[in-house]
Nucleic acid binder design. Structure first.
Length: 649
DNA sequence: ATAGCCTTGAGG
DNA sequence: CCTCAAGGCTAT
């Protein structure tokens, strides 16, 4: 990837980037004096992008911290006067760090007259846009009682019914879900047979979702004390993630006595970086230690609560990761006692042990203050009326569900081993669990170009966010320097998205399934000017089908797209090459063992990867040229596309 | 496999 | 010493 000769960056963007840099340096590098460049560049928050950066990205983070300042100009001063403590810096989420990292490089290059890569610029914007978009969506959702109610019911009731009657069908009487709102937290009555399913704060109002068992059918009645409860509104979605951070950070001192952010059971202590219950602690330990691999039989968005937590270990584990439980906290050597040293090993204010005692953990990832697992951002934009949404696409959803459990049919069955590396990667699939975004109902037939592109762009941004989270949790990826992580992600994001679309279409010949609700045939694509791309994607899909690529192979292919030591500018390509070799060996071992009748399968799979890169390049170009100049709704993603375009020209 | 309880042991 | 977060054990 070459670098654009001139600064192909708009002044607005440059300003935005320096803004990011400035604020993040104030956060994370207090001890060092500001470099002259950044001092000079310190801008006023007067552009749209800057306000994105400030409001969308910084505010939610700082809002959780004791030092929270306003997101306007004064915040800088506040932070200046009151340096953040290390533990608080640790709470800063991955996106912010990534953005700050790139911003720092780009700004330095710009100031010194160098040539920043335009994709660096774009990545900053994408990340910031993602952050702000998700936060906005989240806030909106939390403040709408109707959506809260429908989610709670959709997610909870069926499970309780199964539990209560010990009978798997859906059409028996359900316990009542009661939504209280406009109440102060704690003032809502909670009779003995009620279970507080969730509690939300929004717009100064409190909503409490209570599940009422008239006859006490639940095997267990959970009573929750009247202190601030973390949000446990919905599955492994946005609420849970944000609420958890609140519980762990702003409420950490009263963590004991609260409810587990994974399953809402009673917190027993601080485990693997999060206040959780005993059972989730044990579950996380077993899962990691025994390198278990789970697959969700639904869409990877199962509700996890104290009643149904046993039902879908895949979603439970994904939620563990989402709320911030740390893989590094599981000791590879299984030594007992003592103290841990990973970032976040202590809930509050305790100094971190020195690294020298960590000799046994040389392989562990978090050694360099790269604490980003605590994803503060929501993982999904929930469809408010998700029940209605699938009604016209039930069939497609069914097909997709089938495809998502595709891998289960193949491996293990014959007692053949699955390399640990592959099962580790597989464990993270729930992090990419399928989502959709709200869309206007009339898009099916008369495919207006504009709405379709808007939809596509939004979907892409959503998936990009998840991609970052997924990559961050990949085994050994955390051991790569943050700069290199960013470069790798920049290099492959579109390839990964393209492969994902191919995979989700594996069971629908001639139709490309863009999401759970949207699919495109070749004819439709041609009408939209996407014929070439879709044709090529369908071709890849057909090859995946022909080769009988299973889910383990699919996830390995994805990581192979990511782990490419040839990306320009990598600090440590050696380490990445090593990782790549390990992974390709694991994949080869797996494929040759499981598909002896297809000796060329391994090679053929690898041969698809370059074509994927080609397709994603064409797709980006097509998207860019097809976009009307007024597409501001996703302006920042547009910038990314423009950046890539300039780079590759 | 789960989850509650027990044991360990470095750091304070 | 005590704390508390890690791993271990074991009835279910």
């Amino acid at each position: 990837m070459s670098v654009s000769g001139d600064l192909g960056i708009s002044p607005v963007l440059l300003q935005a980037i320096s803004q990011t840099l400035t604020s993040s340096e104030l956060r994370s590098e207090k001890k060092k004096p500001d470099t002259p460049q950044t001092m000079e560049k310190k801008p006023q928050p007067n552009s749209k992008v800057v306000s994105h950066l400030l409001q969308g990205m910084n505010e939610p983070v700082s809002g959780l911290l004791p030092l929270a300042g306003s997101s306007e100009g004064g915040a800088e001063l506040d932070r200046d006067e009151t340096p953040m403590k290390q533990e608080e810096i640790d709470m800063v989420d991955l996106q912010e760090r990534l953005a700050a990292q790139i911003a720092s490089r780009v700004t330095a290059a710009a100031v010194s007259g160098g040539s920043p890569s335009t994709s660096d610029v774009s990545m900053v914007n994408v990340l910031t846009a993602l952050a702000s978009q998700h936060i906005k969506a989240n806030i909106k959702q939390e403040s709408t009682p109707v959506s809260v109610a429908s989610q709670a019911m959709a997610g909870t009731s069926a499970d309780v019914v199964v539990r209560a009657s010990d009978n798997g069908t859906d059409d028996r009487p359900q316990p009542q879900i009661i939504i209280y709102y406009n109440n102060e937290a704690g003032s809502v009555p909670s009779p003995a047979n009620d279970v507080i399913v969730g509690e939300l704060d929004g717009d100064g109002q409190n909503y409490r979702v209570v599940m009422h068992h008239g006859d006490g059918v639940g095997t267990r009645v959970q009573t929750v004390s009247d202190q601030n409860l973390p949000v446990v509104g919905e599955g492994m979605g946005a609420d849970a993630a944000v609420g958890t951070v609140m519980a762990a950070d702003s409420n950490s001192s009263e963590g004991i006595g609260g409810v587990c952010p994974v399953c809402t059971d009673k917190i027993s202590g601080y485990h693997y970086g999060v206040f959780t219950c005993e059972s989730c602690k044990g579950f996380f330990k077993r899962t990691v230690q025994n390198k278990k691999s789970f697959m969700c039989h639904k869409q990877g968005d199962c509700e996890v609560n104290v009643y149904n937590r046993k039902k879908c270990p895949a979603c439970r584990f994904a939620k563990c990761l989402t709320v911030g439980m740390r893989l590094e906290a599981i000791r590879p050597d299984r030594t007992r006692g003592g103290r841990s040293s990973y970032d976040g090993c202590s809930p509050h204010g305790k100094p971190r042990p020195t690294p020298l005692q960590r000799k046994k953990r040389a392989g562990a990832s978090a050694s360099d203050g790269e604490d980003q697992t605590r994803a503060a951002l929501p993982g999904r934009i929930e469809i408010v009326n998700s029940e209605d949404d699938g009604k016209t696409h039930r069939q497609l959803v069914a097909i997709l569900n089938h495809s998502s459990t595709h891998g289960q049919q193949v491996p293990d069955g014959e007692g053949q081993r699955v390399p640990e590396l592959l099962t580790d990667i597989m464990n993270l699939e729930p992090l990419l669990a399928d989502d959709d975004i709200p869309q206007e109902a009339t898009m099916d037939e008369s495919l207006g170009q504009q709405p379709f592109y808007d939809y596509l762009m939004q979907l892409t941004e959503l998936r990009l966010y998840k991609l970052v989270r997924w990559a961050r949790n990949l085994p050994q990826f955390g051991a790569i320097s943050t700069d290199d992580q960013i470069l790798l992600l920049q290099n492959c994001w579109s390839d990964l998205l393209a492969l994902g679309v191919c995979w989700r279409s594996i069971n629908t010949p001639a139709v490309l399934n863009i999401s759970t609700t949207r699919s495109v045939s070749l004819d439709q694509a041609e009408a939209l000017g996407f014929g070439d791309v879709v044709g090529r994607l369908l071709n890849i899909t057909q090859n995946l089908r022909r080769l009988r690529v299973d889910q383990y192979e699919y996830v390995a292919m994805k990581v192979l797209l990511l782990i490419t030591p040839d990306v320009k500018g990598l600090k440590d390509p050696g380490k990445i090459r090593e990782y790549q070799e390990k992974l390709s060996e694991a994949l080869m071992e797996y494929t040759t063992a499981h598909y002896m009748q297809l000796p060329s399968k391994f090679g053929e799979m690898l041969l698809r990867l370059p074509e994927l890169a080609r397709i994603s390049f064409i797709a980006k170009e097509t998207l860019l040229t097809a976009l009307p100049p007024t597409a501001q709704s996703c302006g920042l993603l547009v910038e990314l596309l423009k950046g890539e375009n300039a780079v590759k020209d």
